[in-house]
Design a binder for these strands. Structure first.
Lengths: 138, 138
DNA sequence: TTACCTGCAAAGAGTTTGCAGGTAG
DNA sequence: CTACCTGCAAACTCTTTGCAGGTAA
């Protein structure tokens, strides 16, 4: 279970000191097979379940913002008051379940090829994000 | 220039009283050929340019939320601290210019057909929103 | 007159920041 | 020892709400 050395290495190689708090956040985010979608509040709740030491919101925000800058996390576009993050940083799309307020990955096989036929002079495409909102069908 | 009666009718038929403030907001939003994309702050600034009477932020928020509920405006998904609105309420997609922080409509001809091959039991698709982020190419 | 609307100020929610004490290297 | 990090509280931004005075019907 102690993959700690991997995370310590990951942090150190990014110029971030491997503190107790950051290692716990790393384990929660990256020590898993599936993609993890979360808000800061989700993350704070989850951390409280796996450790008795309290990690302050300020530290969580700082760490998540650092991870985002290093490219370890991706911010997802949703019109919500909260910011959603994704541990899957590859190009992919999402379902957003409006009842559960929850994101679900769509991989390349789930979506037909998207063709953008318009271009603007002096501008280039940085990313293409598809958000498919779903809700209970009854 | 006085299309006021059209807006008065529009408001009244939606159960909204045609006040001075709402008529001015209507004229700014709907008395134009092109789509208008804005944040509440953009709108407040624009209003200050066309009238000396101050319209308070509370009134602007109330009015815009009412218009959204009536289906006269659409909220656009962007990961931003601000909420973006669009006077084009039809199904369509957007460019988001990261330099200008500005939305640009993509109409159906600009985007190839989008096929969603995945479905979830008990859930149905409510909307499909494509956001293409662009930036200066230099 | 009655129900609704406006504007102000205060309250909320999410996020960021300043700073004193603590920890990694 | 020094630079960086944490936690607290305060500050900030965007948005909503309570309420007193104003306006439409």
């Amino acid at each position: 279970m102690s993959n700690n050395h991997i995370f310590i290495e990951k942090l150190r190689s990014s110029g971030l000191r491997p503190t107790k708090q950051r290692i716990k956040i790393c384990k929660l985010l990256f020590d898993r097979k599936d993609t993890f979608h979360f808000t800061i509040n989700d993350l704070s709740d989850s951390l409280r379940k796996i450790t008795l030491d309290k990690i302050s919101l300020a530290t969580i925000y700082n760490t998540i913002n650092a991870f985002k800058e290093k490219g370890y996390l991706k911010e997802i576009s949703i019109n919500s008051n909260k910011t959603y993050f994704d541990t899957n940083v590859s190009n992919h799309h999402h379902f957003f379940d409006e009842n559960k307020k929850e994101l679900i990955d769509l991989n390349d096989n789930d979506v037909g090829k998207i063709k953008i036929k318009k271009s603007l002079p002096g501008k280039k495409i940085k990313s293409i994000e598809l958000l498919v909102k779903i809700a209970n069908s009854n």
